[in-house]
């Protein structure tokens, strides 16, 4: 019985961890391309998921179309934030704290908008499939398989994108040294906008994957941002693989503390252990060599 419980906790932990990893990956993408911490990332995930829910429940669209729409809206929103606000701050040589304040404020704005449109309830999306599997005594839903598959796809895709495409390389170059990039023919502003578009898309994917399991609600953003950010920082912030390792670590810590300590304390336990890990390995779990990423 307790082995089964452990197996179930691990399965749940890994599933949730992958979601945190996806949120963290999106934040890492934005950090990599703009050196900004995007504190509204969780809210972008919520907006993407809420849009899809709206399209399914109210507009009666087929799920695939609703999901596409969710990704599109989050992407467009993130892009507009860059063009309309971030770019202006950059032009005025704003410092890091201004950008942080901007994205924190926008996060609140977006969740207020979702509250206004949807109310306080949680909304579920239809799962991508209904099969249920049993592995080592743990119940695994088909949605979990989808999450694992899509997370793996995105992780590998990002790695290839940054390493082998000129566009991905230019995106990194533009954030590493904007002056050096501009004199090398790279349109720095355009690269930053592309970064925000990609980050918005990734936020929406995370939100859309989790919504069939726990339901989306207006106040879900900050905790997603926090855990995604923790996952990314734990992994070294610029390394996609690091976010994966970090996310799964957090997910497992959480679900194991539900089993062995108390469900009310799961966030406290998970985040405290994180703090300890950060003190012990300040460059992230994968160490300094893991920091480059790409």
């Amino acid at each position: 019985m307790s082995m089964m419980l452990l197996a179930q906790a691990c399965a749940t932990g890994i599933t949730n961890g992958l979601i945190y990893a996806l949120v963290g990956l999106g934040m890492a993408v934005i950090f990599k391309g703009s050196r900004l911490i995007n504190a509204m990332h969780g809210e972008l995930a919520v907006v993407g998921a809420a849009t899809a829910v709206y399209c399914v429940e109210i507009a009666m669209w087929p799920t695939w179309l609703a999901v596409t729409m969710g990704m599109l809206i989050a992407m467009v929103l993130s892009t507009l934030v860059d063009i309309g606000l971030v770019r202006r701050l950059f032009n005025r040589n704003a410092r890091e704290e201004s950008f942080l304040l901007l994205t924190v404020g926008l996060g609140f704005t977006f969740s207020a908008a979702v509250l206004y449109v949807f109310g306080r309830e949680e909304h579920l999306l239809p799962a991508f499939g209904d099969e249920i599997y049993e592995v080592a005594g743990a119940i695994i839903r088909e949605q979990t398989i989808w999450i694992v598959g899509i997370a793996a796809f995105i992780l590998i895709g990002l790695k290839l994108f940054y390493k082998y495409t000129d566009f991905g390389l230019a995106m990194m170059a533009a954030s590493i040294d904007p002056d050096g990039a501009a004199t090398t023919g790279i349109n720095v502003r355009l690269m930053r906008t592309a970064t925000f578009a990609l980050g918005g898309l990734m936020a929406a994917v995370a939100g859309l994957l989790v919504t069939p399991m726990i339901g989306v609600s207006y106040q879900m953003g900050p905790i997603l941002t926090l855990k995604g950010f923790a996952a990314a920082v734990l992994g070294g912030l610029t390394n996609p693989l690091g976010a994966l390792v970090g996310g799964i670590t957090i997910g497992l810590l959480e679900s194991l503390s539900i089993v062995y300590i108390s469900s009310g304390l799961k966030d406290a336990v998970a985040l405290s252990v994180l703090i300890v890990i950060m003190i012990l390995v300040p460059d992230g779990i994968l160490g300094r060599s893991g920091r480059k990423g790409g």
Partner: peptide, 15 residues
């Protein structure tokens, strides 16, 4: 103003 975190080959490839 090189891209310090990128390799020499990657710096040259961009140019």
């Amino acid at each position: 103003n090189l891209f310090g975190e990128l390799t020499v080959a990657e710096n040259l490839r961009l140019a």
